[in-house]
Nucleic acid binder design. Structure first.
Length: 285
DNA sequence: CATTTCACCTGGTGGC
DNA sequence: TGCCACCAGGTGAAAT
């Protein structure tokens, strides 16, 4: 499910519901897969910490956690400060991060349950286990930073610079998280449609004007999707379990064979960078 | 170094 | 109903 608008929606929802709440107990599944920091380490280091804030960076949800333990105020100025931490959640293809009441039925493929002081639970559910849960202790690790640029705020020159000299398809470049962080398959296809650019065009051969159209289309599509709570193609839901509405606005994604909403030409599906890619052969050149 | 391919997982859908 | 091929929001390691 999760590209920038979906991750943003979830991060906002979780933030609203857990800010100030403290983790009192944790449970993790015995699967190895979704745990980047081992489940055992996370289970040992999470209890006692409070959620200070939850935000999005690229496709990652970053939970800012306070220091653990109860030795809040030390009069000994020489003693080390208790370390704050970050709990980083990546949703992969099918991950969900939910804030529930304790009595809510536990969904299949639930891999993490954090019980909070208020009684509520933060739950991570992920059938395919492509997601990742990582704990960063900020006394020994640097704060999380995305590799690529932030699509919502990138400026024209920097955006154009990402693609200059590159021979790969523009769509493959948009999906590369070390260039831009947060763009996935849906929003790559949709923004290329709105910019009138074919997905297979070599990135480095786009004109400055085309690149600027693409930047603006990308930002508009992402903002619009955020305002509608993201795209629910099959099972995406926000932190409350509510579906998004941007799938109703898709012009090309998963519309193979259906008439283009602008010119009625049937939408085509091809493979680019191994991903299903949808475009209008008449509107996109 | 840049780019492409593939493995990692489960589940839903549609054809036969 | 069953079986099978194919498809799905992502990414990082290996191959080219």
């Amino acid at each position: 499910m999760p590209e920038l608008p979906e991750v943003e929606t979830i991060a906002r929802g979780v933030h609203q519901r857990v800010r100030g709440d403290q983790i009192v107990q944790v449970w993790f599944s015995s699967h190895k897969q979704p745990f980047k920091t081992t489940a055992r380490i996370q289970a040992g280091k999470l209890p006692g910490r409070a959620f200070l804030a939850v935000h999005r960076t690229g496709k990652h949800i970053v939970c800012e956690l306070g220091p653990s333990g109860h030795s809040a105020i030390s009069t000994d100025t020489a003693s080390p400060q208790p370390a704050s931490a970050q709990w980083i959640v990546h949703l992969g293809m099918t991950g969900r991060l939910l804030v529930t009441t304790p009595d809510a039925p536990v969904a299949p493929h639930t891999h993490a349950r954090l019980t909070l002081q208020s009684g509520r639970e933060v739950r991570f559910v992920d059938p395919r286990r492509f997601g990742r849960l990582e704990l960063r202790l900020l006394d020994r690790a640097t704060p999380f930073a995305a590799a690529g640029a932030e699509p919502l705020t990138i400026q024209p020159d920097e955006f154009a610079g990402l693609f200059s000299g590159r021979k790969l398809a523009i769509k493959a470049a948009l999906l590369n998280q070390s260039l831009l962080s947060g763009v996935g398959n849906i929003y790559a296809d949709e923004s290329l449609f709105h910019a009138g650019i074919r997905p297979r065009r070599p990135a480095g051969r786009l004109t400055k004007a085309q690149l600027e159209r693409l930047r603006l289309a990308l930002q508009q599509v992402l903002q619009h999707a955020i305002s509608l709570g993201g795209s629910s193609v099959s099972d995406y839901v926000d932190a409350e379990g509510v579906r998004g509405f941007f799938q109703l606005e898709h012009c090309v994604y998963l519309r193979t064979g259906l008439p283009c909403l602008r010119c009625n030409t049937p939408i085509r599906r091809i493979l680019v960078a191994g991903r299903g890619t949808h475009y209008c052969p008449k509107c996109q050149l």
